[in-house]
Design a protein around this nucleic acid. Structure first.
Lengths: 142, 142
DNA sequence: CTAATTGCAAAAATTTTGCAGGACT
DNA sequence: AGTCCTGCAAAATTTTTGCAATTAG
């Protein structure tokens, strides 16, 4: 997938230096709905950038998160997953295969709960847990 | 806080061997709304059980989770937090001090979203992110 | 040219594992 | 007595950090 001129300009306008590694990460994330971990990204780009280090992956993800181009999601409690779709939406997490599915269609006019009315709320996130269709089978038969 | 006879019987009835360490962990968790990490638990009990190891903390938490006495919550993406209140409820997470606040009062008659209608859903969790009243101040003034 | 970024390597933080000895029921 | 549990130590996983060399703008 090639990146358009506009995108490049847009990224530069945010003050991001566009190194080859960053471009590769940005390309990898573009339209990526797999909610990859840092390692997934590292592994995916390793063939093209054999010298790339984890530090670069994390540095870039941090920079992108600061610019609002990526969001860290807390579906797994022992590692981060990253989502390039930053508009408000929610997730399903398969407890067996760790797959994450986006949920866009949800009516959730939640009011601010009483318990946190004095907090500053920046966002909220609904996570459904369970087993995806593929894993449901295997799980049932145990 | 002393543990009642009934509780002891109940725990035994689940097939849990009640070692001193486990009892201490159970006592520590009883009515505990701090959503501690494994390390919090370890540190809290260290004075009374200087020889206790992390393995025991994790073993016990795993056993309790299996028996449904504790739930792991994924508010932080790099470590587990544990909650002894296992009835359905939700959470607020302070991004500054990492505090977790329980949310009981929420009207959330969510329907199963279209995207995951073929999944087996075991539970769902709403997490509000932001800054608690104490941290709101410090954060604002930066 | 300058500041930001990379790669490396080491360290930090959290969780998991294997196993021998010990404790609970 | 037998099974489960503990403690230890090592390993595995994931993320962070310091620093010298490099590169984008």
């Amino acid at each position: 997938m090639k990146m358009t001129e506009e995108k490049l300009k847009f990224y530069k306008s945010l003050g991001l230096k566009l190194t080859p590694q960053r471009l590769a990460i940005l390309e990898f994330l573009e339209n990526n709905k797999s909610h990859p971990s840092a390692e997934d990204i590292y592994n995916a780009l390793k063939p093209r950038f054999p010298s790339m280090s984890f530090a670069t992956v994390y540095n870039t993800l941090e920079a992108l998160t600061e610019k609002g181009l990526v969001k860290e999601i807390s579906v797994e409690s022992t590692r981060k997953r990253f989502d390039p779709f930053t508009h408000p939406h929610h997730h399903f997490f398969c407890k067996a295969c760790k797959k994450v599915i986006d949920i866009e269609n949800i009516k959730d006019n939640l009011n601010i709960p009483e318990e946190i009315k004095d907090c500053e709320i920046t966002e909220y996130q609904i996570i459904f847990f369970g087993f995806c269709p593929e894993c449901k089978q295997k799980y049932k038969s145990r």
